[in-house]
Design a binder for these strands. Structure first.
Lengths: 257, 257
DNA sequence: GCAGACAAGATTGTCAGACCGTAACATCAC
DNA sequence: GTGATGTTACGGTCTGACAATCTTGTCTGC
């Protein structure tokens, strides 16, 4: 009754207006993170649109990551999620050839620089987070899947510590390619322990603020990654696109964990 | 009536199944890029689902970038678009502080490296694309908005020439922050001409395969950008988040151009 | 008092059918 | 062929309905 469900062309399609309106309420903080969103019927009533329209708006927000299923029939508000970035990126990557060499090159460019910045600017929070992840890695040295996820978390946390938002995103982007690649050959405890040892040294240098050493160790870590890859009999210029596809498919099948 | 619209829990929701099915037909190439998709009614009939369900599936595909409006009532297939990445990234950036210094730092890390790789690996196609963009820039030295867009295109084209998919994405990510920032102070022909001159030199070195010089010029170009920013009286550590927000909002209001 | 079974209610997923405005397309005049 | 014009098909929206299933509050037994 409050809105005007009639005027069709007034400011775009109704479902887009509604989605935009809800989105802005999420962004403004009026709809808090984690909170369950009102039922479709309720939204329909309060917005003045029909339930069909509400549903289309909801689909939009869901796909863009502002709403997420907490359970089959409960949608909750999500402000903090990189999931849509990951999905979008995987879409964009799907049509390009991604080789191990490209990934290695990208890491070699980013990781040492990020480690250096992290050592220069780390805050107490960052160190706490890094320590937490590191401990979890020690605890999961035998659970390879979990360890790989933690490995990625650790490196993203370093990026966060660098206090450079654009680079955090750039680095997070790589994760989508990196995780399945790492998972490809991390299948024994020696590998996880060696890598975790590198992380431990990185952590030390970052917390001590030693930018030089942090950078050097990060570079070695990336090179070690390269060697481990080749030791597994995998070629430097191998196309790793399928790994990404497979991992993405797995992701889409199990969106909730 | 041909399909089985009854079984509800069989493999997820109907609109998700349908979306997945259409998506895979797009990815497989059966539905070609740019082709107009069948009408909602037709899709409903051939899939056996109702039009409402078809519509929800379409909304999903639209939001994830597989379908795009060619005009108010025409949806076409899109396999090659970075738009969803941009949208997703802008969402992720919205809750972080982005400073000019961070952007500058990120550019300083990426641009010279990309220019170097581009010089080493550029293909004929890449050079053609770069030349085309460069000519367009010369032609639009007075049209600042267009020029800024072309500026971004040019740099992304260099990234493409580097033949490193992950870095292309990383660089494309920066564009979202960069374009509004550049647009902030590019308001006179001297600025566009100076920058275009840099591009011209970059192009020369890249096409000649001179990696060293390409890298050096790219670095100078980034530093020139920094100086231009400060000459405009804007601080190095200025928060540029609002610029992004404003630009994104503008984008969302005019999704079709 | 708390865990698990259970019933009742709420909510989503899906459908059918209808209406309006308008953009797309074919047709015709020039 | 180019432009004006009429048709038509399509998209956007609404209403109302129904089944499946999830939530939730309640009840029961240990």
């Amino acid at each position: 009754m409050s809105a005007t469900p009639d005027s069709p062309a007034a400011g775009g399609r109704a479902y887009e207006q509604l989605a935009a309106s809800i989105r802005s309420r999420i962004l403004s903080g009026e709809l808090e993170e984690g909170r369950r969103i009102a039922s479709e019927a309720a939204l329909a009533q309060e917005s003045g649109f029909s339930r069909s329209t509400v549903r289309e708006a909801l689909r939009l927000l869901q796909e863009s990551g502002f709403l997420e299923r907490a359970s089959p029939k409960i949608l909750v508000v999500r402000r903090h999620t990189e999931a849509p970035v990951a999905r979008a990126v995987s879409h964009a990557l799907r049509r390009r050839t991604v080789t191990f060499s490209a990934l290695h090159e990208a890491l070699l460019l980013l990781e040492p620089a990020l480690a250096r910045m992290a050592a220069q600017r780390r805050e107490q929070d960052d160190l706490g987070e890094l320590r937490r992840i590191l401990d979890a890695q020690h605890a999961h040295a035998h659970d390879f899947a979990t360890w790989c996820r933690l490995d990625e978390d650790f490196h993203v946390a370093i990026a966060e510590a660098s206090a450079n938002a654009p680079l955090v995103l750039a680095r997070a982007t790589l994760g989508l390619v990196l995780v399945p690649t790492v998972a490809q050959f991390v299948d024994n405890e020696r590998a996880t322990q060696a890598a975790t040892a590198f992380h431990e040294r990185l952590f030390t240098h970052i917390s001590e603020g030693d930018a030089e050493l942090a950078e050097v160790i990060a570079r070695r870590h990336v090179e070690d990654f390269h060697h481990a890859w080749e030791r597994s009999g995998l070629g430097y210029h191998r196309d790793i696109s399928e790994l990404i596809d497979a991992a993405t498919a797995r992701l889409e099948l199990k969106p909730d964990d």
